[in-house]
Design a protein around this nucleic acid. Structure first.
Length: 349
DNA sequence: AAGCAGAGCAACCGCACTTGT
DNA sequence: TACAAGTGCGGTTGCTCTGCT
């Protein structure tokens, strides 16, 4: 094999400074396979040095792991693989490499792409869910009206459709469909809850602490409500509150206080559950109405603080940019409802 | 037939971690 | 201990294909 290491191009640069990018050719693949046989898998810089490949070591590794490995499985994902990936994602989030070790024959990139395309599609078809109780509680809170005014119209669809009530649930909405909602498959509190039915929530609940920008807004709001404390201060306060709540919950669980009434003993005590699938943390939040623990306390603190929300915060929130409207999640196939400025339950501008 | 939009996929980029010196 | 090189990982981009109008 001819070594090109000392070859220069017309600009005087080493050919290695002129590395190729883009799709791999069959010839490059053949060279890479040959070099992996010679040098062994993992010595990517050595492979690059020893071969004529005008690819960097990272690129060689990627190509090998994602396409040339002999144990790679090609073709569509089986139902078992889908379920496995869904379960793994529910457990470990976006740890694609880790997931790849559990799904034989699939690369992390395969799994990532699979998740980002087909599972997102499925998410659109079967969006995250919120119970009626949570929807009612949320939509009645002052925070909701402010938040709703900031979100794209129709994109904060926790308002109850007029034809739907707890006594009149939408068909099949509390039935887990095949291949549905793998992102929540670890959420026993979801599948075990006794809520009469569940509704889609989009795009996220403000009660969830992993909401990124929205969380910043919440923290800023709390900071303002706490009379001038900074966002960091507010975050510290929230963390302390959560720690206190965790302590309380621990006390309750250890039996030092009377146990909570069983979930679902009455309609008023129905479990409320929010499945939040945001970011990589993939958090599950489950609260009970009579429970002081978990996010509920934050929720109550949030609601309690809302009436005191001052004009400054309202001004900030009101000035959030408007994006293109998004149809209601629960009306996937109903274009008549989109866009609809008159009957959307949102504040007008 | 042409144009467009969306889905799927391959590959790149930047950051973090590990290892060797 | 500090630094550099190598490697791995997750997010993102951009290309190609396909179906629809």
């Amino acid at each position: 094999m001819i070594s090109n290491i000392n070859k220069n191009n017309e600009d005087g640069k080493s050919w290695r400074d002129d590395l190729r990018k883009g799709p791999w050719t069959p010839i490059e693949d053949a060279i890479l396979i040959e070099q992996v046989k010679k040098c062994g898998e993992g010595n990517w810089s050595l492979i690059q040095k020893n071969s004529e490949l005008r690819r960097n070591g990272k690129s060689c590794r990627l190509r090998w792991l994602n396409h040339l490995r002999p144990d790679l499985k090609k073709g569509p994902f089986s139902e078992e693989e889908e379920k496995l990936i869904g379960d793994l994602h529910a457990k470990i989030g976006n740890k694609w490499a880790l997931m790849a070790t559990e799904v034989p024959g699939r690369s992390d990139n395969d799994i990532k792409n699979f998740w980002n395309t087909r599972m997102k599609k499925r998410l659109r078809e079967y969006p995250p869910q919120i119970t009626v109780q949570e929807a009612q509680h949320f939509s009645s809170s002052p925070f909701y009206s402010v938040l709703a005014s900031c979100y794209p119209k129709n994109n904060l669809s926790v308002e109850l459709p007029s034809n739907i009530s707890a006594a009149n649930p939408p068909p099949n909405h509390n039935q887990k469909q095949p291949n549905q909602n793998y992102y929540s498959s670890s959420s026993s509190s979801c599948t075990n809850n006794n809520a009469s039915f569940i509704l889609p929530l989009a795009p996220m609940s403000p009660y969830c602490k992993s909401s990124g920008l929205l969380n910043d807004v919440v923290m800023e709001g709390n900071a303002l409500c706490r009379k001038g404390k900074s966002k960091m201060d507010a975050a510290i306060v929230i963390v302390r509150e959560e720690e206190e709540l965790a302590d309380k919950r621990k006390i309750i669980e250890e039996g030092e206080e009377p146990p909570l009434p069983p979930v679902g003993t009455s309609k008023e005590e129905e479990t409320t559950t929010i499945i939040a699938t945001q970011s990589s943390s993939h958090q599950l939040i489950s609260t009970e109405k009579n429970d002081n623990g978990g996010c509920n306390n934050n929720k109550e603190a949030l609601n309690n603080s809302m009436p005191q929300m001052d004009d400054e915060l309202l001004s900030i929130l009101k000035n959030c940019p408007i994006y293109s409207p998004v149809r209601k999640w629960y009306k996937v196939d109903d274009d008549e409802d989109f866009p609809d400025d008159d009957d959307d339950g949102f504040e007008s501008w």
